[in-house]
């Protein structure tokens, strides 16, 4: 359980970082989608850390390697991929959880899948796998 939680925390931190990278290249109606996604991922980090009752908590990463994002198309591609990959991360978390925690993991994975499509991603049979 805790391994999958730590992986999910890392994935959410990476996602929030990716939104920061992509945001300057997105505008208009995308702004709401950026804001919604960014807030969702930030809140998830907090929620997952609470779920991970054990100490020590994993430290926040010092940085992330990321592909260059220089235009709108690259920004969309990055966010679609980040969201897609989180689907698999949350499926792993679901597998290692039970009850309400498992349901939360599945629902969060579904939200990531929907956002991936919103950023121009294509549906997959096993998203992120």
């Amino acid at each position: 359980m805790s391994e999958a939680l730590i992986a999910a925390i890392a994935g959410e931190q990476a996602a929030a970082y990716a939104y920061g990278l992509a945001a300057p290249y997105l505008s208009g109606s995308d702004n709401d989608l950026v804001r919604g996604g960014l807030v969702a991922h930030q809140q998830r980090v907090t929620a997952l850390r609470e779920q991970l009752a054990s100490t020590p908590q994993p430290p926040a990463p010092l940085g992330f390697e990321a592909p260059p994002v220089n235009d709108e198309s690259q920004a969309r591609q990055l966010l679609a991929q980040v969201e897609l990959r989180l689907c698999a991360t949350y499926a792993d978390l679901a597998a290692q959880s039970t009850g309400i925690a498992r349901r939360a993991a599945v629902l969060t994975g579904r939200e990531c899948a929907v956002r991936s499509i919103s950023w121009g991603g294509a549906p997959e049979a096993f998203p992120g796998r």
Partner: peptide, 21 residues
């Protein structure tokens, strides 16, 4: 079975993405 749970979680995400697409 956790493996079944993982598969069903992935399928749920896939179907949510179908609805969005």
């Amino acid at each position: 079975d956790p493996n079944l749970a993982r598969t069903l979680a992935l399928i749920a995400a896939s179907e949510a993405s179908h609805a969005q697409a």
